[in-house]
Amino acid sequence: MSTPILETKAITMRFGGLTAVDNFSLKIGKTDLIGVIGPNGAGKTTIFNMITGIYEPTEGIVELNGENIVGNRPAFITQKGIARTFQNIRLFKDLSVIDNIRLAGHFRVDYGLVASIFRTKKFHAEEKRLEDEAMELLKIFGLEKKKDHLAKNLPYGEQRRLEIARALGTKPSVLLLDEPAAGMNPNETKELTKLIRWVRDKFQIAILLIEHDMKLVMEVCETIYVVDHGVQIAHGVPSEIQNNPKVIEAYLGTDAE
């Protein structure tokens, strides 16, 4: 593996008496596609929340390009290059599709409040750039015709796609996807499988994928981590994971979905 772009070193998260994640370590290289699987409540989303700064790990560190990012605000971590989607989609529902994407470019915008009030040249130039970049992403995701629709009015599958597009709008070097196939039918899931691989190749970024649906992860990911009750019980390429008795017992045996 090349030098890791993102690394968690023995991160632990305790909520009162409950240890949701226990000493979890993982490494992601520059263009890796890595999966984290585990039954419901295993601690997968909590791992994402610790990486993105929504929770501060009780113990352990998270390194982005070798630099510890624990203790920073989620906004800062996003600006440093980690973007994410959410298990239960979190779009700006009452905003248009294109405004959702424009907001991803917000922190790079180079004009102030006064420029916005007086509609200066710089304001128009920057807004134009924002719009062009947003349109480019919308085209890639086949949403350009719906740019003025409210996000909440999109069908479910398109909302998922928009959320991925919006995350890419922050120009991340690592993309975290939390159960992107949740609620999708087999057809949509197949499309998504292709899309995820394609995004990695096109944008040349690392992707960390949480899934509950084994099949998708087996197909898409090059390396898989398995967690159960907050503990990492296996780690390897899909074929190894598939035949690992521990995984079959802990994951497939108890929660075959």
């Binding site: 993105t52 929504i54 605000r73 989620p74 906004a75 800062f76 996003t78 600006q79 973007a83 994410r84 959410f86 979190r90 779009l91 700006f92 529902k93 009452d94 905003l95 907001l103 991803a104 917000h106 922190f107 919006r166 709008g169 922050t170």
Partner: peptide
């Protein structure tokens, strides 16, 4: 609209 999402967009 969604404070957590806004934060996660670098805002």
């Amino acid at each position: 609209e969604d404070e957590i999402a806004a934060d996660s967009m670098g805002i």
